[in-house]
Design a protein around this nucleic acid. Structure first.
Lengths: 212, 212
DNA sequence: CCAGAATGGATAGTCAAGCTCTCCGTTATG
DNA sequence: CATAACGGAGAGCTTGACTATCCATTCTGG
């Protein structure tokens, strides 16, 4: 297919497709002559994926590029998902050293209780987690962390479900993309469900507004 | 305290504090003369909150402004948390009508099974949820939605925990801010825990990289 | 075959968000 | 009373993500 069709099929404007090609987010089409190219259904899917990652996942294009490079590369699924998580996490904001230390200890305890390990240097998910906990403490809401074990137990159940969903797929080479989609969209979906549930649960506790 | 101290105490540069004052994110200080003002510890806390919402929560300043206006207003806690959720959700991206319809039906079924109701028009959390599910379908990963009930059950447990944590606070007028912090930071914390757990669970399933 | 539309490629322009810088006249302070 | 800080307003800057304009090919329908 040609540019116009690629654009129509993906819902991405021609100018933007060209921009993604320039940025290397979209692989070049197959050349049919020195200055003409042909695109495939894979290109359409790739564009849809880019749209999902930016619009739904809220990822910056640079992160999308890193993620796409990872899934195109020859790393193991585990390594690839590591890249996905790094990019999804983004750069952790700065927090005060004492709050960060407090959060680190909390997490370290948690890890000990569950016999888990990670490499703090190379794991931005941990960095973000520490930053979020530390920020809560700095705001005077360190009580949030008291139930960390319970939150963690539930997160573990969610993660087991995530892995089950991804592994229950037919095509093996689709597993990496499925993992990516499950992670990025899964975060949004679960957060949405949580908010919905919060609304319903808090309706009983906080009471409905007088006017309704 | 004066500007310099406010800036130092919150970690926000003077120029940025002035900018927030201009934008109405930070209430003006108490006047001591026609062109001098004095700030309080509340201003420091407010700045810290703004920082948390933008840096950790990833909210645009406009949303932060809406949220702060809501918690400063005289709405009920339930209404205020509604505003928080609307702003947190952001504008849902566009999806195809058929995918949106499919997702709507899924959610509607879910709601029926649990006897829940909501007002679709005024609930962006629902809009985002639908968009995320619809996007998964458009990408050919509609299997993600097969376990929606299980995800939902876990989200419900998380939400119950959220409400418990917020209600277990001493000061009543801090409950709204605590709800805000619990929602914004809570999302990040839970997502971080989920990623951590995914890493550990998938390590067993996908196998460790050959080199380690 | 050929006029007009589409294409690939490069460069420049646009727009919003979120600051940051510079002045300036006033006010506080050692 | 010299000098540092302040408040207020405006302009400027940076980044990210496009969008628009050209132009020299290339395709395509009549």
């Amino acid at each position: 297919m040609r540019m116009a069709e690629l654009s129509a099929g993906s819902g991405v404007p021609v100018a933007t497709v060209k921009y993604y090609l320039r940025e290397g987010l979209l692989p070049p089409g197959e050349r049919t002559s020195p200055n003409q190219a042909r695109y495939s259904a894979d290109h359409v899917q790739r564009l849809r994926l880019i749209k999902a990652l930016t619009e739904v996942g809220g990822l910056p294009l640079a992160s999308v590029g890193a993620v796409l490079a990872a899934i195109d590369g020859d790393a193991t699924p585990h390594e690839t998902m590591g890249v996905v998580q790094q990019e999804l996490a983004g750069a952790p904001p700065e927090v005060s050293d004492e709050a960060a230390e407090w959060a680190s200890v909390l997490l370290h305890d948690l890890a000990l209780r569950h016999g888990w390990k990670w490499h703090p240097k190379e794991n931005r998910a941990v960095g973000n987690l520490i930053a979020a906990l530390a920020t809560a403490k700095e705001l005077g809401h360190e009580k949030l962390a008291e139930r960390l074990d319970e939150y963690f137990a539930l997160a573990l159940r969610v993660a087991e479900l995530d892995v089950e969903v991804v592994m229950g797929l037919t095509s093996f080479d689709k597993i990496i993309e499925a993992g990516l989609v499950a992670t990025v969209l899964g975060d949004r979906i679960f957060t949405g469900l949580r908010h919905l549930a919060q609304e319903q649960v808090s309706r009983d506790v906080l009471g409905r507004p007088p006017g309704s």
